[in-house]
């Protein structure tokens, strides 16, 4: 494991790409007890203070350098997708809108590729249902998302079913490692 010197400038690796995410899907990562303690207890509540790793490490019974090294290693291994603040894009003026289309099998790939090619489309999944293409439109404003949806509809000739969130219910997810 590479050492992290106090004060050394380290930046996080870029978020795992599609390819490394795929690799992570293939086998369950090997985590030791300390890794699990970190993953299970640091999904929120990272302190905002001058020495936050030191403070977080104390509550986990680790030393600061070990915590930093292990987070770094977990990011590199793709066990973590990121480490830092999770922003609520909707409330910051951005717009994310879930939408779906119902596509016949023989036209699925063509339309899915066109949807993916639009920069406003952030996520796109194939799902098992009559509505078989599910994606999220994301832009600075709802109008820009709507324009992208209308463009897709006009080019592909399939309707888009829009599912904007009407209410978000509080969740406290803790994935157990």
């Amino acid at each position: 494991m590479a050492g992290v010197k106090r004060g050394a400038r380290r930046t996080q690796p870029p978020a795992p790409t599609h390819v490394s995410r795929r690799n992570a899907e293939c086998s369950r990562a090997e985590l030791d007890e300390t890794d699990r303690r970190i993953v299970n207890n640091l999904q929120g509540g990272f302190p905002i203070c001058e020495w936050p790793f030191l403070e977080a490490a104390r509550t986990l019974g680790l030393d600061e350098r070990e915590l930093i090294e292990r987070i770094d290693k977990l990011l590199q291994a793709g066990v973590l997708t990121r480490f830092g603040p999770l922003f609520n894009a909707d409330r910051l003026g951005g717009a994310n809108i879930l939408a779906a289309m119902s596509l016949p099998d023989n036209d699925f790939d063509r339309v899915a590729a066109f949807v993916n090619a639009q920069p406003e489309i952030a996520h796109n999944y194939r799902r098992g249902h009559t509505l078989n293409l599910w994606f999220v439109g994301a832009a600075e404003t709802p109008d820009k998302v709507e324009s992208a949806f209308q463009y897709i509809e006009s080019v592909t000739n399939y309707p888009i079913y829009r599912f904007p969130k009407e209410r978000e219910f509080f969740v406290e997810l803790k994935l157990q490692a």
Partner: peptide, 13 residues
């Protein structure tokens, strides 16, 4: 900010 911390990759876990 919803939270500050680590975001696990579901699949890797």
């Amino acid at each position: 900010i919803r939270r500050i911390g680590l975001v696990p990759n579901h699949y890797a876990l």
